[in-house]
């Protein structure tokens, strides 16, 4: 039982190494892309997509969200909703034409 458990962890360790290499590679990619002559919007979209992929890799594997208990997912869904409101509200405010008339 104990050795099977240890083998299990070994498998995880291999995944951690793959994630680590992917994170380093994506860091170089995002730096390289920032030197390309993309439009401002294009550059922001690409950089944020890469950052989101990297962040998801960290959360999924290093923070074990790939196999967590329901209670944690529930709290994080709630957090995501509030985070979206936080990011969205000021933008709605900014887009309100009345303020700028």
């Amino acid at each position: 039982m104990d050795s099977a458990h240890s083998e299990d962890i070994q498998k995880h360790v291999r995944k951690y190494v793959v994630v680590f290499v992917a994170l380093l590679a994506l860091t170089l990619v995002t730096v390289a892309v920032s030197y390309l002559d993309l439009s401002k919007t294009g550059a922001i979209v690409v950089a944020l997509i890469i950052a989101t992929v990297k962040g998801s890799l960290v959360a999924t594997y290093f923070m074990h969200l790939i196999s967590e208990k329901r209670m944690i997912y529930m709290s994080l869904i709630l957090t995501a909703v509030f985070f979206a409101v936080l990011m969205g509200l000021p933008l709605f405010h900014h887009a309100d034409p009345i303020i700028y008339k």
Binding site: S34, A47, I50, A51, K54, V58, F62, M63
Partner: peptide, 16 residues
């Protein structure tokens, strides 16, 4: 890991 995750977003936003 969370502190790492925050930096992953700070880096492109502030530097790139």
């Amino acid at each position: 890991h969370f502190v790492d995750l925050v930096w992953i977003f700070l880096f492109p936003v502030l530097y790139l």
